[in-house]
Design a binder for these strands. Structure first.
Lengths: 137, 137
DNA sequence: ACATGATTCGTGCATATACACGCATGTTCG
DNA sequence: CGAACATGCGTGTATATGCACGAATCATGT
């Protein structure tokens, strides 16, 4: 592996490696890593407009729009009522909770692999990544 | 921002944030963050087959094939001779070195922003990401 | 009420990413 | 030599990502 001196390249490389590992863990579940991740975040977030959910998750609004749209077509996410006709409030559907429950063992097994690699330094990594995310100009 | 307990989600989120910052730094240069990153890696790698370059950079081979193809069309990368007719050996072209020189100030300014955020902990982050990349099954 | 600006969203477009498949070339063994 | 396997690529397909643009809705001031 070529060494990288650049933090951006390094982070993107690590993210690809981790994504591949989690994708393999979700193999056959019908959900991709981003889909499962967003579904779980929506579960914890509660009913939420798309724009607000995008801001809360650090995604582009249109990425959220399309990914949540796919989850909605699968019945994992549903629309909630809202006074503002512009906003599309979404929340997790019962089938979405089932999907999370179904995928969680494999997901947490992957998470456990991370723990094996990092041990107590996991907290340190998260703290460093928190600082990295302050990069927004 | 919703807190994330998952290392995968966290890493991907950080990678998106950093990518956006570097993309902004390269604004108007004609190169994207992945393109500049790969061009620079190829420069340091030296002539290399696509498969070998993919392995060295942690990308899928077909991602390399297409991205390097785009750089080749721009004249930043060129083919080199090789006995094996299957392999496509590529190396950086003079125009590619020029492009790197042209983009480097902006790139290093972004890198400097990382240093501001991380300081001496930069080494620690890289060490943790090295461990993360051992995740491959 | 209405015009103006702000907010919320969807869609078109482009690139990044990676899997599945097939083609061309190279290697090995009988 | 020739068949069978291995290696290196390109392309088709699909999702992820985000920018630019425009449509629909809402809020505000007159």
């Amino acid at each position: 592996m070529l060494p990288t001196v650049c933090a951006c390249t390094k982070l993107r490389r690590s993210a690809r490696a981790v994504t591949a590992f989690y994708d393999a863990a979700l193999e056959g579940s019908g959900l991709s890593t981003p889909q499962f991740s967003l579904l779980r975040l929506l579960d914890r977030s509660g009913p939420c407009s798309l724009t607000a959910f995008a801001e809360r998750t650090g995604h582009d609004r249109t990425t959220i729009s399309r990914t949540i749209g796919a989850l909605r077509e699968q019945g994992l996410v549903r629309a909630a009522e809202c006074g503002d006709q512009r906003a599309r409030i979404v929340e997790i559907a019962p089938a979405g909770k089932d999907a999370i429950a179904r995928c969680l063992p494999a997901w947490e097994a992957a998470e456990h692999r991370i723990d094996t690699l990092l041990g107590a330094d996991r907290q340190a990594l998260f703290a460093l990544l928190d600082r990295i995310e302050e990069i927004r100009p």
